Amino acid sequence: MNEFQRIPPAQAQALRQQGAVVVDIRDPHSYAQGHIAGSHHLDNQSLHDFITQADLDQPLIVACYHGNSSQGAAAYLASQGFSQVYSLDGGFELWRTSYPAETASANQD
């Protein structure tokens, strides 16, 4: 693929149910306040370890605040060899209104 696709929350939810990995690139405080249940926080410090330990063939969904920053991160991850990379349109803000039961905070993980 070496490119990413932008997808709406409904498609992201379907991919999650099929085993896709979700990474959240927002700041640590925002992630702790609320994130997609089961997602991994990814920042500059954890990026290298994540890439080296990940299954590059497993679908990967990148989430941010509103779906803008995730596009750059998704493009980067695709360039690192991930075969199926998706950027969540609307980001966590749209996700939490679409799937409130599928959100978590730091004390719920």
Rank of each mutant, 00 (worst) to 15 (best):
S98G: 10
V21T: 05
P28V: 03
G81S: 04
D57C: 08
N107R: 08
P9K: 00
H48T: 05
C64E: 03
A14C: 06
Q80P: 02
D43V: 02
L47Q: 07
Q33Y: 05
G81H: 07
H29S: 11
I36F: 10
D27L: 14
S30R: 11
V85K: 01
A73K: 09
Y99Q: 10
F50K: 06
S69A: 14
A74G: 03
H40D: 09
G91K: 09
A14L: 12
S69K: 12
D49W: 04
S30P: 10
Y86I: 02
S83Q: 15
Q53S: 12
Q58D: 01
W95F: 15
Q11D: 11
A37Q: 14
Y31H: 15
W95K: 10
Y76W: 11
P59F: 00
Y65I: 01
P59N: 02
R6I: 00
Q11M: 05
P100K: 08
V62G: 04
V62K: 07
M1P: 13
H35V: 04
S79W: 02
G34N: 13
T97N: 15
S39E: 05
H66C: 09
Q53R: 13
A32V: 00
L56C: 07
V22F: 12
A73H: 05
H48V: 06
G34L: 15
G72Q: 08
G34E: 04
Q5C: 08
D57R: 13
V23N: 04
T97E: 15
P9G: 01
A20Y: 02
D109M: 11
S79T: 00
L94R: 14
E102K: 06
V85L: 06
A14R: 05
A10F: 00
S83T: 08
D57T: 06
D55N: 15
W95P: 09
P28A: 06
Y99L: 13
Q5Y: 07
Q71N: 03
A101P: 12
Y99H: 13
